[in-house]
């Protein structure tokens, strides 16, 4: 592959062309998470950063990653990647295998109780309303805000208790969305994501 083409691939992963393989893995993972909409960094941009754009970026990232790995195949096969980005995320998680847990409202309450944190303290620390936290744990979905806001709140909640924020938000929102699908007709085509019901 010509040098310039290769440099462009590294640019996509936001790396210099001499980056160690470990950085290639880490950057790929980090950017993939970021543009999958998992990050609070993209959330505030809403519709200004369209899903179409995210999808395109994700495709570029995957393409660059695959091509870079192919170009370094001998090295890639003998080096065990150190997923430090993954490790960072799990740094504050519980000793039990977090992948095996489904973070429902009651499960979150249990985790909070185990840490001996009262709802009152949590409310003060996170600057979230007591009522909201209570409803969140009790899964009174009808009282909760739209998913886009809820995700941020869940992540704040999880981070404070040392739970994996992305997984907590994903698990909880899966339940929330299942409830939503059951109770309301599907939104019309092209409805704004920010639209409040």
């Amino acid at each position: 592959m010509p040098k310039d083409d290769l440099k462009k691939l590294y640019d996509v992963l936001e790396l210099p062309p001499d980056a160690p393989l470990r950085d290639v893995h880490n950057s790929h993972l980090r950017l993939k998470k970021l543009y999958s909409g998992e990050s609070i960094v993209l959330e505030p941009l809403g519709e200004e950063f369209t899903d179409k754009k995210k999808k395109k970026i994700l495709e570029q990232i995957e393409e660059a990653y695959a091509k870079i790995l192919a170009s370094r195949a001998p090295e890639a096969s003998r080096t065990e990647p150190l997923f430090s980005a993954e490790a960072a995320e799990e740094k504050l998680s519980e000793p039990e295998d977090p992948a095996a847990v489904v973070y429902s409202g009651p499960r979150l309450r249990k985790a909070r109780d185990a840490k001996n944190v009262s709802l009152n303290e949590l409310s003060k620390e996170l600057k979230l309303r007591l009522e909201l936290l209570n409803n969140l744990e009790a899964e009174r979905f009808e009282t909760l805000p739209e998913a886009i806001y809820l995700r941020a709140q869940l992540r704040t909640y999880a981070a404070f208790l040392g739970l994996p924020p992305v997984k907590v938000a994903d698990d909880y929102l899966r339940r929330y969305n299942a409830w939503k699908e059951k109770t309301s007709p599907p939104p019309p085509e092209g409805a704004s994501r920010r639209h409040r019901s």
């Binding site: 936001e14 990050s39 960094v41 941009l45 980005a85 960072a88 995320e89």
Partner: peptide, 16 residues
């Protein structure tokens, strides 16, 4: 910042 994930936000913001 409170953990590594917070630290990495800077890199994400740079990218975005």
């Amino acid at each position: 910042v409170r953990n590594n994930q917070d630290v990495q936000l800077g890199a994400s913001i740079k990218s975005v």
